[in-house]
């Protein structure tokens, strides 16, 4: 995954609450066996409407999306993260995210920023005609009007995002510890250690 630190530019002032993964990418787009090209299907039902927020001259290709509470709820489909990336979105700001979506976003180098609703309300106003600036290193979101919001992020995720680290590679480097646990399970919980249909 690509390292990410600074995301600046147009932010789509979407703001909707409980945006589920079927809205982000409907199921018929999940039949692909690759990760590419899903931007076409992103927010398909909304974008079928003339003058929708995603396809205006200004918002097309914007790197930031501002959404409402519980963004990405529903399915575990990582296609939602791939679709956003393919649209050009590398940062989503919302009051909360579904657990699975935020994990999927993280694994694809998309920064999910959690800010309180008041901050979101302010950003939704500013973003209509002004750029937004998100900085991961300093954990801040700023606007041209001296707004400055700080956000929390898990230190491990921050470290991985900044370095663009491959998590599978990181875990494989812990092989000795994994082997030790595997042996412990085999000794203590043999009924879990293997799965065979005798």
């Amino acid at each position: 995954m690509k390292p990410i630190n600074h995301v600046a530019g147009t932010a789509i002032p979407f703001g909707a609450k409980n945006v589920d993964t079927d809205v982000i990418i409907p199921a018929h787009w999940l039949k692909t066996i690759t990760r590419e090209g899903l931007g076409k299907g992103a927010f398909e039902a909304i974008r079928a409407e003339e003058g929708n927020i995603f396809d205006t001259e200004r918002n097309k290709g914007a790197p930031i999306l501002i959404a409402g509470d519980n963004f990405g709820c529903g399915s575990s489909r990582e296609h939602a993260a791939w679709a956003l990336l393919d649209m050009g979105i590398t940062c989503v700001i919302a009051p909360s995210f579904s657990d699975i979506f935020s994990g999927n976003a993280f694994k694809n180098g998309i920064l999910t920023v959690v800010l309180p609703q008041e901050a979101i309300d302010r950003l939704l106003v500013v973003a209509v005609d002004q750029p937004i600036d998100v900085d991961l290193e300093s954990q801040t979101v700023t606007t041209p009007f001296q707004d400055r919001f700080t956000f929390e992020i898990d230190p491990f995720r921050k470290h991985c995002l900044l370095g663009g680290l491959d998590e599978v590679g990181l875990t494989l480097s812990r092989d000795a510890a994994i082997k030790q646990h595997e042996a412990k399970i085999a000794a203590d919980l043999p009924f879990l250690a293997t799965a065979s249909a005798a």
Partner: peptide, 16 residues
């Protein structure tokens, strides 16, 4: 619990 495809890959490769 449900996981995304990158985590599917992670579990396949590491069982963790």
């Amino acid at each position: 619990f449900g996981i995304g495809t990158s985590e599917v890959e992670h579990v396949l490769a590491t069982q963790t």
